[in-house]
Design a protein around this nucleic acid. Structure first.
Length: 113
DNA sequence: CTTATGACCCTGA
DNA sequence: GTCAGGGCCATAA
């Protein structure tokens, strides 16, 4: 490790990746859903699926449609008894997305950039 | 359907 | 520097 290698401590690659991911998530129109890996890939960051989830959780932007981001299985990544699950499900239903057996028909509602 | 395994990424202690 | 954990993913059994 170098000692004088970071002129700006706040400068992180991850920080910029966050911006891109947030930006991409904002591009998801209402009535559509996308998986974490899909968002990551659409952001030009394949393999960042996990980072996306961690990022959305941390982000507090009100204009960020985090509820439109689910896992690749078409299911919400929270526990069914969790409040977050209910909230997300309700918001998606409000946008016209229907759930079948706690699952979304990705085939139909999948966001395609 | 569940469980296991390997992969790839970042954060915080 | 190591280690555990997280809104993950794909494949295999």
């Amino acid at each position: 490790m170098r000692s004088n290698d970071s002129p700006t401590p706040k400068n992180s690659k991850a920080q910029e990746h966050r911006e891109i991911i947030i930006f991409t998530v904002k591009q998801i129109p209402a009535g559509k859903v996308a998986s974490h890996g899909q968002v990551a890939k659409a952001s030009g960051l394949p393999g960042y699926a996990r980072f996306v989830g961690n990022c959305l959780k941390q982000s507090t932007a009100s204009d960020l449609p985090w509820h439109r981001v689910i896992n690749a299985q078409g299911k919400i990544s929270f526990a069914e008894n969790s409040e977050k699950y209910k909230t997300q499900q309700q918001r998606l239903r409000d946008e016209g997305i229907e759930f079948i057996n706690n699952r979304v028909a990705m085939k139909k509602y999948r966001w395609q950039p």
